[in-house]
Nucleic acid binder design. Sequence first.
DNA 1: ACTATGGTGAACCCGTCAGTTCAATGTCAG
DNA 2: CTGACATTGAACTGACGGGTTCACCATAGT
Lengths: 238, 238
Amino acid sequence: MGSDCRSDRFKTPTRAVQCAFVTGMTASAGRKGARGRIDKRQAILDAAFTVFARRGYSQACVQEIAEEAGVAKPTVYNHLSDKETLFRHALEAAAEAVSADNLASVERLRDPGDDLRAALEDVAYRMLRVCCDERSRALRWLTYAQVARFPDMIEVVQSRTSSRLAEALADRLARLSLAGRLRRCDPAQAAGHLLALLTGPMEARSLLGTRKVSAAETRTVANAAVDTFLRAYGPEPR
Amino acid sequence: MGSDCRSDRFKTPTRAVQCAFVTGMTASAGRKGARGRIDKRQAILDAAFTVFARRGYSQACVQEIAEEAGVAKPTVYNHLSDKETLFRHALEAAAEAVSADNLASVERLRDPGDDLRAALEDVAYRMLRVCCDERSRALRWLTYAQVARFPDMIEVVQSRTSSRLAEALADRLARLSLAGRLRRCDPAQAAGHLLALLTGPMEARSLLGTRKVSAAETRTVANAAVDTFLRAYGPEPR
DNA sequence: ACTATGGTGAACCCGTCAGTTCAATGTCAG
DNA sequence: CTGACATTGAACTGACGGGTTCACCATAGT
């Protein structure tokens, strides 16, 4: 069987690519059984996000996505009709994953303990980490970059990330306000302001994500934001 | 005479080419009748930004830029060597124009009068108007969208817009702090926080610029930001 | 062993578009 | 008038890439 067509089997199996990029799921090896098809679909979606994040939409070619997924090009089209569908599904999955991470961070405000400032600083740092990691950055970038082509994706992504995060944070701040640990205020506005104080300076420092920001620097940004936030929204002196 | 037409491929971008299109002009148009002595190069750069803003980089074709400028395609290549050069020059000019507008807004803080809050609200509203108008939005969008292809443009644009604005604002805040009208603080951080409080909520409301935000709503955002800012950075009660 | 299912590589069609060439035209300098 | 030169429309080249087709193959379930 060593005919010409089999002679190129020395291609490295890039099948073990990081599926964790989008889904955060463990890279369950693709047993080529009944589940093979599902694994492939997942691998393709993961690879799509990876490549789109690397090249941008128009520069990413389906061939590269196929290679990244360790799959042939026709297989890609077999699972997802075309490039646009690929893009939409990949972004939506990534948005969902980011959302989960964000909500997990905020949840820590449910029991802030005695030291509210410390709790806020902790949550702030975690949110910055999530908001500025590679996946999150790529997601925002891709969405923003393709406004002209897919304007509806803004709504899809925004609702799953910023909006959901702001709402969850507002919930926690409302409780804190009611408990007298923050002054009486509009919790939605307070949440918006806290998030702005965090992400705004962070984006400036990272030059829209192109420059690496150290953990210490991130902590500084987080603490400064919390300080300003507490000056503005902390409990009234009575 | 336009003797430099062919020879300026590598000419420095010296003259900040005023991208008039950004100032709200509508496809100004070198009308074919007036084909005498208009500066074609200017028209081409204006048209380039207009079309890039409309379609994005890769979707914009040089043919359309030529038509927008009222010029033939070879003429475009006669003035600017290729599409990339077109893009870089157009963006840089737009950044320069946005910078000028931003600095003009901040300059109003030089003599804030008796009512600091009112002065800040006025300046905040003006900055929001500048930061969120069509030209500014298109500029940020294009820069962000082409990070993968032209990573260096981030630096070019950022330094002329965000950074320059933040510095100018920090200058004014430093004076106010020294005059006892704000508490003692790091002016750079204060400026960063004020800008974040303004642009963050604004971007959320406008869905990254896709939704129109009314003047009244903009005012609300500005006033809320100033309120929070003054609570955090206002003069200490002593 | 047989067949069905889905995967595979390679070639292919086709549209788009950057960048070029060219002959013709318009405009000015002298 | 004439020559120099920018400009123009149109046609052309070459690259690139989305999407399809097809003949072939590998494995699973029977």
